[in-house]
């Protein structure tokens, strides 16, 4: 119990340290520039305490339980003895030997994104602003699928050693083409969803996977090839959210075709 309290105290302290610049900026501007009493000050202070306590507990739980296990699993899945069994380790990595790694990358990318608090926040806001046209779970699942594809493809890139810019630049080209066809409403949100996915839960686990892969595959350097997975995880959700919007618009159009009295969601509001 004592040890637990000590750990909790440490995490709490570092969370407070992380939050302090935000609090200083917010209250500094409030006091010296805006110079108006803050509305509902008591509620906001209570809320801030919830945020800090919640984040500290969240991080402590992740660090105690899930991160160590996730890291060990990433190591085991990329371990040559798991991939090649008792057979000899080939000089050059063959991409098909790593199918479980891609599956793990996709699954862990999806699962961590669903648990990402900042994505939940953005999804709630988007649903609120769009008057429910964008559903909280619809957006979260669309983003999670994007991260799953991205991290999986990123793992494939580390295994094959193909240059990172090829993938990222092709991804950009896809985003640009999709942007031309997407409804205007969704574009800013889709672009935002790239940045929000890679946060507290996703980054440590995905980074562990990248480092594990890069350090066990012959010819890869963890220092050079270990990077880049986060970039995949922030690019592909843009594509999947744009695709999700196009799919909903398409289904609405079909529904509208059957019943002309209903307006399409994309054009409403």
């Amino acid at each position: 119990m004592g040890q637990f309290l000590l750990q909790f105290g440490n995490t709490l302290f570092s969370t407070i340290l992380d939050v302090s610049p935000i609090v200083i900026i917010l209250f500094g501007f409030q006091l010296f520039v805006i110079r108006q009493p803050i509305k509902r000050l008591k509620q906001i202070i209570t809320g801030m305490i919830y945020v800090i306590l919640g984040l500290a507990l969240f991080l402590l739980g992740l660090e105690k339980a899930l991160f160590p296990l996730g890291e060990v699993m990433a190591q085991q899945l990329t371990d040559p003895s798991f991939i090649h069994g008792d057979g000899p380790v080939p000089e050059v990595a063959y991409w098909k030997d790593y199918l479980w790694v891609y599956a793990f990358a996709a699954a862990i990318g999806f699962a961590t994104t669903i648990a990402e608090p900042s994505l939940i926040a953005v999804a709630i806001k988007a649903s609120e602003v769009s008057g429910g046209a964008i559903s909280v779970w619809g957006l979260r699942i669309a983003v999670a699928i994007g991260v799953a594809v991205g991290v999986s493809l990123g793992a494939f890139r580390i295994v094959t050693g193909l240059p990172l810019p090829w993938f990222i630049v092709s991804g950009y080209v896809v985003v640009i083409i999709q942007t031309f066809f997407a409804t205007k409403m969704i574009i800013p949100l889709a672009y935002d969803s790239g940045g929000v996915t890679t946060s507290t839960v996703t980054v440590p686990l995905v980074a562990a996977l990248g480092l594990g892969l890069a350090s066990t595959i012959p010819g890869r350097s963890p220092l050079i090839d270990g990077f880049g997975l986060i970039a995949f995880a922030s690019l592909f959700p843009i594509i999947s959210v744009l695709a999700y919007a196009q799919l909903t618009a398409y289904m609405d159009r079909r529904a509208a075709g059957k019943d002309n009295s209903t307006k399409t969601k994309g054009e409403a509001s």
Partner: peptide
Amino acid sequence: LFMQGLELAL
């Protein structure tokens, strides 16, 4: 807790 704080404060 965090989700509560989100709606109350952030």
